[in-house]
């Protein structure tokens, strides 16, 4: 039971990472109608830059700042040079151009950082455990990821729903021309919104980096999981993203733990572990298939 709670928390923590990714993607899609596959690359850039800063300075906070800034800047540069030309093009064009960016960045990080995965140490001031329930000790770093992620999401909700900037953003989603007439620089606004989404991806990347190996292609694994989150939750719905992220995070984590155990009942351990792990990777897609079979628009689609 204690083990189960621990795994459940691990699932939440993956869920928070996915939620950060999903909210950035949803923000960009909702406002600029852009489907950005390179969001995974921004996640990866955050992780790599964060890992490098961490290695040189030993400071996780500096790593966080560096990773987020790098992703934000790269994101804004991509928006300024390429992506803003694609806002009014079909999704197919957006997919192919951002697919090109994935290929580019995956090669680039291999050239800069090499092919060997980087490991990132847990920051020393977070390398202790917290007894969250009697008898359940949980690493502080993982708790911090959950906490920071949730804080950021709450902040994002607040920004979109309660502030003047958020009002502009929500208005820009529907009536671009009126904003232009009111004198808000819409192009700058779009660049900043994109930058915000990129920063969220970078933040997710740095925070997840001690828990996964930092290597080329890491972004796409997360990106595809994020798509599943969005599909399950319903496109354009932040509430759906929260539910989807938790569902995917928990299903994936529990599947990884319990499928191999299940398989060991009739296969030898090595085979069971390998087959179980892969089948666990399939769990979330099966969850997605079931959700879509029942609700083709996802659990909480914002608008038809």
């Amino acid at each position: 039971m204690l083990f189960f709670i621990e795994q459940l928390l691990n699932g939440f923590q993956l869920g928070v990472t996915l939620l950060l990714m999903a909210s950035g993607l949803t923000l960009i899609f909702g406002i600029m109608h852009l489907i950005n596959l390179a969001h995974g690359s921004l996640f990866m850039i955050g992780a790599f830059v964060g890992a490098t800063v961490m290695a040189y300075t030993g400071s996780f906070l500096l790593a966080l700042a560096g990773g987020v800034a790098a992703s934000g800047l790269v994101g804004m540069a991509l928006e300024y040079t390429v992506l803003r030309r694609l806002y009014y093009r079909e999704h197919l064009d957006q997919v192919l151009a951002t697919f090109g960016m994935i290929l580019f960045f995956n090669e680039l990080v291999q050239i800069v950082w090499g092919r060997r995965p980087l490991g990132v140490d847990t920051p020393s001031w977070l390398s202790f455990t917290v007894e969250i329930l009697p008898g359940v000790a949980y690493p502080a770093h993982r708790l911090a990821v959950i906490a920071v992620g949730l804080l950021v999401i709450v902040g994002l909700f607040f920004l979109i729903m309660r502030t003047r900037v958020g009002m502009w953003i929500r208005a820009g989603a529907s009536i671009r021309e009126m904003i232009g007439a009111l004198g808000v620089n819409i192009n700058l606004l779009y660049t900043l919104v994109f930058g915000l989404g990129a920063c969220l991806a970078g933040l997710a990347g740095v925070m997840a980096s001690p828990l996964m190996s930092v290597q080329a292609g890491m972004g796409e694994n997360i990106l595809i999981l994020t798509f599943v989150v969005i599909v399950i939750g319903g496109i354009g719905s932040l509430r759906g993203a929260v539910v989807g992220a938790v569902l995917v995070g928990v299903a994936d984590t529990l599947g990884r733990v319990y499928f191999p155990a299940l398989f060991r009942l009739w296969a030898d351990p090595a085979t069971a572990d390998a087959a179980g792990a892969s089948l666990a990777s399939m769990t979330i897609y099966l969850v997605m298939a079931v959700v879509l079979a029942v609700r083709p628009q996802g659990l909480f689609r914002a608008h038809a």
Binding site: V82, L86, G100
Partner: peptide, 10 residues
């Protein structure tokens, strides 16, 4: 290839 693709789309 990546940048070629982006240019081709644009």
């Amino acid at each position: 290839l990546g940048p070629v693709l982006i240019l081709a789309v644009l």
